[in-house]
Each structure stands twice: as structure tokens, then as C-alpha cells.
Design a protein around this nucleic acid. Structure first.
Lengths: 366, 366
DNA sequence: ATGAAAGCGCTAACAA
DNA sequence: TTGTTAGCGCTTTCAT
């Protein structure tokens, strides 16, 4: 009945709105309206159209729709390494949240600045309505300088808004982070309260603002109370490098009795090295604190004291910001800081005579 | 210099190929050709165009390009829960692989059949050139029956090719899996060789072919050698339910001295429960085997014996198949089974007098 | 090698 | 409410 050409060879011609219109005996526009939320169509017409669409197996073409409306409905997401559960789970939550609003997620995997320089233009070609950066490290500043983008950019878990471009134009980027400095001061207090005296820090990537802010709060608070961070190692936010960092730190003399890692993956590496390779007891010989509160942190094998970033709230804030930025292109992107929380588990010692209300809290995702 | 309208208000008009053409003093088509690999343009013209594009900040519109060429360059990916590291890492590898071919990944997060029924049509609206399913459970069969799709579908890590639709039409779906039955027989042999006598199994989702095939190989081989699986619990492929399954299994009498879990996440749960809650030693009191070989399996805290799925090879095979299917729409999708490998670590006992060449192998990703 | 012209499939402004 | 008419920005014959 339909005029399909050459059955089963070549790229079969897809059903168009015109086909549906003809079968339903209405105009193209009627079809368009029948399929658009809140357009003015009679129930009768809509029914005819829907029926025709059904029998023909019609799927409207969102590419064309996006072109015509000058809004694709696609959001770009540049994501860092997904072997970091924190980022992986964040990606899932974000894409689900976007789905609720009928938006599609186009992802680009990259973990270097150079990747962004490729990702951004290629995403812009697809006319994404906006773009997220999911990483405790990546920032679009470098790339955005060289490409005129004109789309909202929002960074999650990071806050590199540093950018003044070559042309002197500021590159405005929204950012959602936590109170890294403040919470890291609390970490210092916790460790101090547990009687620790020799402090070490494992940074993520040296250039990452998250890593630096966490270090600053930790170092500053320790200094205020008369202590210094005696050793700093680099773990690049991943487990493998965390292993090496932990080995270096634990072999030093005096051996640190407190290690704060800029994320959980590295903290887990410390735990594994301390126990399996150095035969140390945690927290007796060395106390360990991580950051993020990934699922593994709550598992019995680790039961890691860590800082929980409010993942769902951060995503929610990011999406709200993005949506606002899309609606009002002249709006200035903001930097939003949410509060993080210390989750005390068994890798730190209890301060004498203090209660720990959040102790033994379960994992973040139920 | 450029005719931008109303500076800084409303959706600023984007630069088009025509703008570039005018500035370069050539035609629209020249611009198109200059930007297309392998078109016939003089170096001179191309240079002029590139320069004009640069100064104008031109980004070609891939949506329109896709519409005109009848090929979007977008691949849909329906992904299961990303808190399963195996799926998360697979997603990263897949999207990177796609990027190499200049393809974009549009992801849809879902973990239920009902999600697929929504995901598929919405992906088809964006004219994805094909769609992957990343899950040890999800299959597009149910949804594909009701929607005419006409795009290649490839399932990774699963093999539900069962589908004969209501209309009697077969829904052809490509699939990349491993030799679940065979390798699970090997698992049975390993456990038997270690002296285990009371066997239990933790299934993923009861309907998942992966889970069923693994169970079948395990049960069959055990039976051949005179043993039965005394208990089966359901862990739904996730850690939390794995915890409950492990508790049930380990509380039973006689207590199993061998537990094979359909994936690593559940096996880790067994390890945590056995040690922390039941005070058992692994592998002395109970041997544990998982499936997938996620990063955590290789970490010292777990050091789990497991079956490694050749992730990178599977993705590669999947992409090859997808690309072939896109080029030749009449090609029949195949089901490809790759070989998996047993990685012996410390949660199983050594068979007397046998060497274990793959013992203590490192994690899959370096 | 280049330009002119014809679409690709849809939405939106306008009439009716 | 409905149909008609213009585009949206690009690629691609077809001439030249």
C-alpha cells in the first residue's frame, strides 16, 4: 500500500509526516500538530493521525524538528573516566534526570584537556542545547577559549571558572561543587581528635581545583592547631596510582598515622596497601579518610570514613542551572557550592568521649 | 563586521555555510566541499573557506547534515545500571571506540524492559544509525516487537535472540556474549578440585540468559561428577541484593562451602558477609567465585577468583558487527560468542598438585 | 573545480 | 481548527 521502493535493498525510505497525512486524509501540519503537546487540534483529527501513524510505523524526525526549532533537545555530557564509580553513577543520575525532561544525552568520553578540545566542537556540530562536564578535573576553559560556542556550559564536581580568554572575553561556565575547604578542615579535626600526629595527603591531579581546595582546608586547619602535613603524594584520582602513592607514603619515616586522600578510589588503595603489603592495622596504625562516598566505601571490606558529596542534589542543581541558562541566554552562569558531609566509619579512630551520630551510615544509593 | 542581530538578546543566529561562503567569496557548495573529506576542491578554495570559517567561528550543522544524508552519525546506547562497574567501563570503552569512527553516542539509562519500550522509539526519533544494549539482562525483544525500527540492534553481554514477534516476524538482533556454559563447567571443576562438597549458586535476574547459562554449566558439570547445587538464591546482579542472598545461603545447614555468583558484585557481597558477619575464612570455610572481573575483584581486600569477560574484544566485535549491519541493511545479525577466562585468585583453594598459571593476574584495565 | 538549483522532513506564521 | 506557504541549513546532482 505504501510506495516502498525496491523492497529490502538500499536504505529503505522512512515513513514521513506526509505519508501519515495522506493516509489520514489531512495536511502535513495537522500531523505535526497532532503529535505536538498542546497544539490546537480536534480530538477527531488527532485520533485519525495517531491511527495512521501507528499503522505506518511513523516516528517523527527529531533531527529536522531540532533544526527547525533551533533547539535540538540534546545535551552534551563530557565525562571523565567511568572506572571511577562516582563519575559513572553521576552520569547515570544525570542522564535519567535529563530523560525526565525529555532531553537526550550525547556523551563524549575523555579525560584530558585535549579531549575537550575535540569534544566541544564535535558536540556543537550536533547543536547540543548545552553541555555538562562530569569530572573532578576536566574544565572546558582551555577549549572554550578557542571556539565560539554560545551554549551554556556547566561543570559538575569541579569549579574551574578561572577563565579569561585570549581575546579578553570571559568564558562563563556554571559550576556545582561542594565546600571542599570547609569539610577538609573538619577532616583534619577528626584526625587530630583521634590522636593522629603525622599527617599525609594524597592529591588527585595536581591541577584540579577540587584536589587543591581539599588540600588547602586540611593543611590550614592542621597548621592552626600546630601540625604540618609531612608528606604529599600524587594519585591522579585513580586506584592504580593511589597504590603507588600509598607505598611511597607508608615506607617513609616517620610513617604517617593519618592519610587523607582526595578521593575514595585512592583511599581504598591506601587501605589495601596498608593491610596487605605493610601488615598495618587501620585505624590503629594509620587512619584513612577518603572523599566522595562511592559504594565500595560502605562495603564491609573497606568501611571507609569519607566525605559524602550530595550527588543527587548536585545533579539537580546542575540541571536547574542548565535549564535556566538555556531559557535565558543572557543569564550569568553561577557557581553553586553545596554542603558535603563527613561519614565516619571504621577507618578513623573515635575522639575520646564523643558520639558519632552518622557512624555506620549505609551507602548513598539504596 | 558580521551581521549579528540584536547583540545579546534572544537566541543569537548561528553562523551558516552561506555566511562563510560570502566571506570567502565562493558558493555554498564550495564551503560544503571544503569541509568534506575527499571532495573535489582546489587547495586555494579550501584555504579561503577554512580561513573564513575560522574567523566567523563556523560549526557545520550535523543535524541537517544527518537529515540530508539519511545518516545521523549517532549511535544509541541503552545502558543498564552504571553502579555496576562492568557496565560503566563497557560504556566508556564503547563510546571511545565509537568516537574513533567519528560516531556520537546517545545514551539512555534504563534497567527495565519498560524503559526499553520508551528508549527505543525516542532514540529512533533522533534517527540513530543503530543501537546497542549494554546489560547482562536487558533485551530489546519486547519493545522491538511493537515498533518497526529498521535499525540494527546489537546486544552486548547478553544473548536474548529469542524473538519471534506477534506478527510472526522475527526481530533480528545481534549479540555478543561469552561461552557461559563452558566456562561455568570449568568453575565447577575448579571448586570440586579444591575439595568443595556443598554447592550454592547466586543467580542474577532469573530471566537473564546470562545468569541461566552460567547456572546450567555449573549444575550440569557438578551433576556429571556426582554433586548437586544444594541452594540457589537471587541477587539481581547487584551488591545490595547479593548481601541478602549471601546471608540466606550462609545461614543454611549444611552451610555451603562453595558459592558461585553470576557476577562479581554479588560475589563481593558474599565475601563481605562471610567474613564480617559470619566470621568465616575464605577459601577455607567457603570458596567464592564471581563473574566479569571488575576492578574491585583484583584489589587486595577481595582478591576474588572470577571469570574474565574479554571486554575490549567484545566491544570491538560489537562495533564491527554494528558497522557491517549499517552498511548492509539486509545482512543477518549474528550471535558471536567469545571465550572467557578463569582468573584464579585467593578465594578458591588450589587443587592438589596443580599449577595455576593465571594466578594473581592483575586487573583487566592497566 | 565550481556554481545553480533541487530537495531532505519538519514547524510556524499566516490565511481561511 | 485547518490547510497553505515559507523557510530551517545542508548536501548533492547537474551543468558549466
Amino acid at each position: 500500500m505504501s510506495g516502498s521502493q525496491r523492497p529490502g535493498s538500499g536504505p529503505r525510505r522512512r515513513v514521513t509526516a506526509l505519508d501519515v497525512a495522506r493516509l489520514a486524509g489531512v495536511s502535513r501540519s495537522a500531523v505535526s500538530r497532532a503529535l505536538t503537546e498542546g497544539a490546537s487540534v480536534s480530538d477527531e483529527t488527532r485520533a485519525k493521525v495517531l491511527k495512521a501513524a501507528e499503522t505506518l510505523g511513523y516516528h517523527r524526525n527529531a533531527l529536522v524538528r531540532g533544526m527547525v526549532r533551533q533547539r535540538s533537545g540534546i545535551i552534551g555530557i563530557v565525562a571523565g573516566r567511568l572506572d571511577n564509580p562516582f563519575i559513572a553513577v553521576a552520569l547515570e543520575i544525570l542522564s535519567r534526570r535529563l530523560q525526565e525532561d525529555g532531553l537526550k544525552s550525547m556523551i563524549y568520553s575523555g579525560d584530558a584537556e585535549s579531549d575537550i578540545a575535540v569534544a566541544l566542537p564535535s558536540l556543537v556540530e550536533y547543536r547540543v542545547d548545552g553541555c555538562f562536564f562530569l569530572s573532578n578535573d576536566l574544565s572546558p576553559q582551555g577549549a572554550a577559549k578557542y571556539t565560539r560556542l554560545d551554549i551554556p556550559l556547566v561543570v559538575l564536581f569541579n569549579s574551574d571558572m578561572a577563565g579569561i580568554s585570549d581575546h579578553g572575553d570571559e568564558v562563563p561556565v556554571g559550576a556545582i561543587t561542594v565546600d571542599n575547604v570547609e569539610i577538609s578542615r573538619t577532616v583534619a579535626d577528626l584526625l587530630l581528635g583521634g590522636g593522629c600526629r603525622h599527617f599525609a595527603y594524597i592529591e588527585g591531579l595536581p591541577r584540579a581545583t577540587t584536589s587543591r581546595e581539599r588540600q588547602r582546608g586540611y593543611v590550614e586547619r592542621l597548621a592552626e592547631r600546630g601540625f604540618a602535613v609531612e608528606a604529599v603524594a600524587t594519585g591522579n584520582f585513580n586506584y592504580a596510582d593511589g597504590l603507588a602513592a600509598a607505598r611511597g607514603l607508608l615506607a617513609a619515616r616517620p610513617r604517617p598515622d593519618a592519610i587523607f586522600a582526595a578521593n575514595d578510589l585512592m583511599a581504598l588503595a591506601v587501605l589495601d596497601v596498608a593491610r596487605a603489603e605493610f601488615g598495618l592495622s587501620v585505624p590503629e596504625d594509620v587512619a584513612v579518610v577518603g572523599f566522595d562516598d562511592i559504594g565500595a566505601a560502605a562495603q564491609a571490606a573497606y568501611d571507609l570514613t569519607t566525605v559524602r558529596q550530595p550527588l543527587a542534589d548536585m545533579v539537580e542543581a546542575g540541571v536547574d542551572l542548565m535549564l535556566a541558562l538555556i531559557e535565558e541566554p543572557d543569564r550569568r552562569p553561577e557557581e553553586i557550592r553545596l554542603r558535603s558531609h563527613l561519614i565516619e566509619r571504621s577507618t578513623t579512630r573515635q575522639p575520646y568521649g564523643m558520639s558519632a551520630p552518622e557512624r555506620a551510615a549505609g551507602p548513598q544509593e539504596a
